[in-house]
């Protein structure tokens, strides 16, 4: 479970950053990029507490 959460967190960072790159490359509109970034943000804050908190402890 922890491992899956960690993978999802890395995925979330990708979902936050890649749309910005795609916007830069004219492959994605700004509104779409922003929507993906919000999705990545939500996923990050859902997945990360499962492993990062554990790691800290």
């Amino acid at each position: 479970m922890k491992r899956i959460a960690e993978i999802l967190s890395w995925l979330a960072l990708g979902i936050t950053l890649v749309p910005a790159c795609l916007f830069f490359a004219d492959k994605l509109g700004l509104a779409q990029a922003q929507a993906w970034m919000l999705g990545g943000t939500v996923l990050w804050f859902i997945a990360t507490p499962f492993w990062m908190e554990h790691k800290t402890t």
């Binding site: 960072l13 936050t16 950053l17 910005a20 790159c21 916007f23 830069f24 990029a33 970034m37």
Partner: peptide, 13 residues
């Protein structure tokens, strides 16, 4: 980590 990524996105966009 998320904030760092969003800052990078600020610059790229």
């Amino acid at each position: 980590p998320w904030m760092v990524v969003v800052f990078i996105a600020f610059g790229i966009i």
